[in-house]
Design a protein around this nucleic acid. Structure first.
Lengths: 201, 201
DNA sequence: GGATATACTGACAAAATTGTCAATATAATT
DNA sequence: AATTATATTGACAATTTTGTCAGTATATCC
């Protein structure tokens, strides 16, 4: 006589979160090839059928993953902007950190895989951020001629640079400035460039 | 009686290039999921066995792909640097173009997939480029205090920004500045920032 | 023109991967 | 305590994908 198999019964939300989190971790570690239902299931300690039960499809899982990654980026960036009275250096630092830890990799891969997924978020988010920063810059330098468009492009530059740095920076910096130290030095240099731009002209 | 099947017999180099090129095209189009031996074979008009014959493994193919992508980037960047007497705007434009057309996507994906592949190239390449540009900047502005390190980081910034822009820029610019026009406006703004940095202080 | 090397193919094997479905265990409800 | 709803599993099917191997066609060399 066989023992009845012990089961953990989660709430749908818990189950979905467990699956999504382990999937994200797997992507960050193993890369694109890591997204196999069986692998995710094995890592999460569940059967792969459960994933299909909660997301219907492999495609459904991917969709959910893009949305979660997008939301995570938004949270991190808004958190970075939340401290109103900090130096530009610190702000830049936090923005760069927002993309680190595998999030950039996930976003990149998901972007390639699901070209039109999670469309609305990033653009409006960048708009909000640019507006907030615009007011802050005006307050900081009352005399200067700071336009809204300049702020917008500045935010864009920081975003794409942080993205590129997280994704390919270490590779480009190999040798002399590889590793953590080089990354930090680049950030400070970049912060100085921005500060120069804010003051100059 | 059956007709003997007509065959094309290429040189090993030709065959390898045919396979690599169609594979790169497929990745750019279909994304990571597109790299299946059968699909590549079908698109190239060959049998999938031939791929295995020339690259031994799927892994061997991936390795070759990373090297080719890396080499392609190098070629494009060196070509961009080759015109010695052009405005910074044009130079920036060509660097950004170097990452366009799916190359950034391929590099990103291959980077995630084969974390230590094609290691040596980019770093030394960036070094060469930085040196060339350093001399050019010195010649252009004899009086200024331009350091080698500043040039190095400038090159790094342009590289990661171009990379990020190619990969995620369109997404971030959705809405107001989406499309081609926004991309161009960002480039000109960025060029102005660099020019300002070159002249100022 | 015949022999040789090898690029190339087709069929097959083996493994993996997504998806289906019926059965079961567990929590909540009555 | 019995009933109900459903989260979870295991077995199975179907398709796909990588890889193997023996044989065939084609160019080159003697």
């Amino acid at each position: 006589m066989t023992e009845p198999t012990r089961r953990v019964r989660r709430s749908p939300e818990q189950a979905r979160r467990l699956i999504l989190d382990t999937a994200q971790a797997l992507i960050a570690r193993t890369g694109p090839e890591g997204l196999r239902l069986q692998d995710i299931a094995a890592e999460a300690g569940i059967s792969h059928s459960l994933i299909l039960h909660h997301f219907t499809n492999r495609a459904g899982l991917v969709r959910a993953l893009t949305q979660q990654a997008s939301a995570e980026l938004k949270d991190r960036l808004l958190a970075a902007m939340a401290q109103p009275e900090s130096s530009p250096e610190d702000l830049l630092d936090r923005v760069f950190d927002a993309f680190a830890g595998g999030l950039a990799q996930r976003l990149a891969w998901l972007a390639v895989m699901d070209p039109d997924g999670g469309v609305e978020e990033p653009a409006t988010m960048r708009h909000e951020i640019a507006d907030t920063l615009y007011k802050r810059r005006l307050a900081a330098a009352p005399g200067r001629a700071i336009t809204r468009e300049d702020t917008q492009w500045l935010v864009h530059l920081v975003a794409v640079a942080a993205f590129g740095e997280a994704l390919y920076g270490a590779r480009l910096r190999r040798g002399a400035n590889g590793g953590e130290a080089g990354a930090r030095r680049f950030r400070t240099w970049f912060a100085a460039l921005i500060r120069e731009h804010n003051q100059g002209h």
